[in-house]
């Protein structure tokens, strides 16, 4: 029970704990550039993945908070540890020799990097920015849905966390608890649609206003410059 609750809590804190705050409030173009650079860094630092990983952990901690960086690092480490350990065991059973532990650690670091980057980009997506883009492209009705998605998903997860916590108080097994916890998530979505039917079927006439953050835009630009510098160094080395 506690393990499932812990996992759900990590997902919530990594993706939905904060609203339009931190680097989420930097412009989309900068975020896209960050994504492109993270892919290039992965390729360039394939043999030293800890360098870009450390860089992005620092970026996450400064841009989204220490708790975000901590939760996301643990969450990314879970599948990465699985990949590293299974690869190591496979090599052992195959009778391979050499730097098996070092290679397994490399697999762990690369997988952690990819998962961490995925979480970072999910965390810095701004539903309001997407909504504004959709509105400008003429998808007025569709411009409501990013907002709705970012409302009902965390609301459902939050209900699930409460439900799991109550399960712990009641001393119930996790499997018994998962069904009703999921049912409450589904009920949340269905009720939101029924109650808000007229609004969801309407077209917003004015896009939502958005205040970009100069501080976090500067932070993103600084990291882009550092990444650019690292890319050049990697070519020289």
């Amino acid at each position: 029970m506690q393990l499932i609750g812990l996992l759900v809590g990590l997902i919530y804190r990594s993706l939905f704990h904060r609203g339009e705050e931190g680097v989420r409030r930097s412009p989309c173009v900068l975020k896209l550039l960050l994504l492109i650079f993270s892919a290039l860094l992965y390729k360039s630092f394939y043999l030293r993945p800890y360098i870009p990983l450390a860089l992005f952990i620092i970026f996450g901690a400064l841009g989204l908070g220490l708790m975000w960086a901590y939760s996301s690092f643990i969450l990314s480490s879970i599948p990465a540890t699985w990949y590293g350990v299974t690869a190591y065991l496979y090599w052992i059973f195959e009778g391979q020799r050499g730097a098996l532990v070092e290679n397994a650690v490399m697999i762990y670091l690369r997988a952690t990097y990819i998962s961490f980057i995925a979480l970072l980009f999910l965390a810095i997506i701004s539903p309001i920015q997407i909504s504004r883009i959709l509105h400008r492209l003429g998808f007025r009705k569709g411009s409501i849905f990013p907002l709705l998605l970012w409302r009902i998903t965390p609301a459902g997860i939050s209900n699930m966390m409460s439900s799991l916590a109550l399960g712990t108080l009641k001393g119930e097994s996790s499997w018994k608890r998962l069904g009703p916890a999921l049912a409450s998530m589904i009920e949340e979505g269905q009720n939101d649609w029924k109650i808000n039917y007229h609004r969801l079927e309407s077209e917003p006439l004015i896009p939502l206003e958005y205040n970009y953050s100069l501080k976090y835009s500067m932070l993103t630009i600084t990291f882009l410059l550092v990444e650019f510098f690292l890319l050049i160094i990697s070519k020289v080395i």
């Binding site: 609203g19 309001i128 970012w150 965390p154 609004r199």
Partner: peptide
């Protein structure tokens, strides 16, 4: 809690007004 659509207070408030 079923009457809310947006994830942020000001977005919820402004969305309602934007539709009209």
């Amino acid at each position: 809690w079923y009457g809310i659509i947006a994830h942020i207070v000001y977005a919820e408030f402004c969305l309602s007004l934007s539709i009209v």
